[in-house]
């Protein structure tokens, strides 16, 4: 178990960024750290990962192999992706996971300098070096930044598979972490860590306006929440349900007035 004990951090001539953080991290589910811009999330992550030293306090129980993804994985690297992953795995004393990069949907050249990669592909190399080395502790700073939808889902899957034996600490601004199974949610405020309620996942919705003979009856037949205004039926539905809903409404004799984002 990784223990963060009374960690303080203050940068030169600045206010304290971390003011006594106590935290115990264990395998079994990712720990999601929230907090506003500049609240010290990245600083805490760097200290937990072992690439920054706290001004006071200490981190104990850090496993021998650590995977760390910085919040801005540099895109201007000279080594090719394959060589970089091989070198990083050798530094950790492990072997790189050969299939992980492909699993994330990496589409760039693997034998040419990484400086030519797009932001998303560079981020995938960063994820592969952090997650593909069998690390006992994985620290990911904004891992969803720049990822496409498919790679974001893959990342959630990989984190779910790894969480049984790996301690995972992650920050997120995209709302994706809210959907991680078994996640523990924390918030960093005023330099201290406190428990936070799990954020509600943001579900996109579609607004549908129907013109019907009898809007109330149609609303009951459709069985979805909605309201009647000026003889028109206003509905909200998740995108995957909108087509069957519209089909049923048309069969009930309604005409579609508008469909758009809610």
């Amino acid at each position: 178990m990784v223990r963060v004990e009374g960690v303080h951090k203050r940068y030169r001539n600045g206010p304290p960024v971390l003011a006594g953080v106590d935290l115990a991290l264990a395998p079994g589910g990712p720990t999601v750290l929230a907090g506003g811009n500049g609240s010290g999330k990245s600083t805490l992550l760097r200290i937990v990962a072992g690439c920054a030293l706290p001004s006071a306090g200490r981190v104990t129980g850090r496993p021998a192999v650590v995977g760390y993804l910085p919040d801005r994985f540099p895109a201007q690297l000279r080594l090719p992706a394959d060589a970089y992953l091989r070198h990083l795995a050798r530094i950790r004393g492990t072997r790189p996971d050969p299939g992980l990069l492909a699993r994330f949907g990496f589409t760039g050249p693997r034998r040419e300098p990484m400086a030519g990669l797009s932001k998303g592909n560079a981020q995938k190399v960063g994820l592969a070096q952090a997650l593909g080395a069998g690390a006992g502790l994985v620290v990911l700073d904004e891992p969803w930044a720049g990822l496409d939808a498919a790679a974001a889902d893959t990342l959630a899957d990989v984190l779910g598979e790894a969480s049984a034996g790996t301690t995972v600490l992650v920050t997120d601004h995209t709302g994706r972490a809210a959907r991680l199974a078994g996640a523990r949610h924390l918030r960093l405020r005023d330099g201290r860590v406190e428990d936070a309620p799990a954020p509600t996942p943001v579900v996109p919705a579609v607004a549908i306006v129907l013109r019907c003979q009898d809007p109330e009856q149609v609303r009951h037949r459709l069985g979805v929440p909605g309201r009647v205004e000026d003889g028109r039926l206003h509905l909200r539905a998740v995108p995957s349900d909108s087509d069957p809903l519209l089909f049923t409404a048309l069969r009930l004799g309604c005409s579609v007035e508008s469909v758009g984002p809610a």
């Binding site: 760097r46 072992g50 192999v65 650590v66 760390y68 910085p70 540099p74 690297l77 990083l88 620290v139």
Partner: peptide, 17 residues
């Protein structure tokens, strides 16, 4: 790169190596 150095330090398990 300084950020890259952070990744290397985390992978190597400290500044020493």
């Amino acid at each position: 790169d300084p950020v890259q150095r952070d990744v290397t330090v985390a992978a190597a398990g400290g500044v020493g190596p």
